[in-house]
Amino acid sequence: MAKKIFERPRYLKENVYHYCPGCGHSIIHRLVAEVLDELAIGERTIGVPPAGCAVLAYNYLDVDMGEAPHGRGAAVATGIKRMLPDRIVFTYQGDGDIAAIGTAETIHAANRGENVTVIFVNNGVYGMTGGQMAPTTLLGQSSTTTPGGRDRSRDGMPIDLSQMLAVTGGSVYIERTAVHSPKHVRRTKKALAKAFKTQMQGLGFSLVEVVSQCPTNWKMTPADACRWIEETILSFYPLKVIKDEVGDI
């Protein structure tokens, strides 16, 4: 008799992803769905999708979802969580959303120690609008608004939001992971689970920054995009636990 060893996660809808081939979002969505199921919290979870490629996350994640204006995910999540403290509230945000237009909302939510979980997908580019420079774009990296590459004197340095959030008093768990190889995908899932557990135990603000591939806007094949993460991006954005006041949970 055949044994089922792999299936669609319970909290993933039966919709075909709109994401480009090789994009990291579909992997991260699936990990979120798996974690919600494994922690048995899907029926009390409310998600806040961003403006950007992942705005359509509610087409895939089968939990209550409330769309935030661009960058305001942390503020919207604050409102939901404060009214429903026994529910699990997460935001899912890209680098432009969280580290440019939404910097203030994110830092202050972290500083207040809002008991929410932030999933921060860093692919170094504004994807949905067609590949403009993001706050996280690397020096020298080409984009439609840095055609000759990001220049320090003109465009500033790439920002490390997770490090900034780590110095706030209210953040308790921040880790940077990636999804360009199976090993890293597994690590990301562990980090997501820990972030949600942090919230379940009421410990404070948790965030997982996931370095993710955007082959379309990087103008690379999916395989080259994964190699570029390993060889280039991770030297500026090293994968590590940035802050952990939670310990083993």
């Binding site: 409310i46 409330g66 935030a68 305001r72 503020a75 919207v76 999540a77 409102g79 939901i80 404060r82």
Partner: peptide, 8 residues
């Protein structure tokens, strides 16, 4: 935006 969340 917090009000949006609380209203939701």
């Amino acid at each position: 935006n917090m009000v949006i969340g609380a209203a939701m």
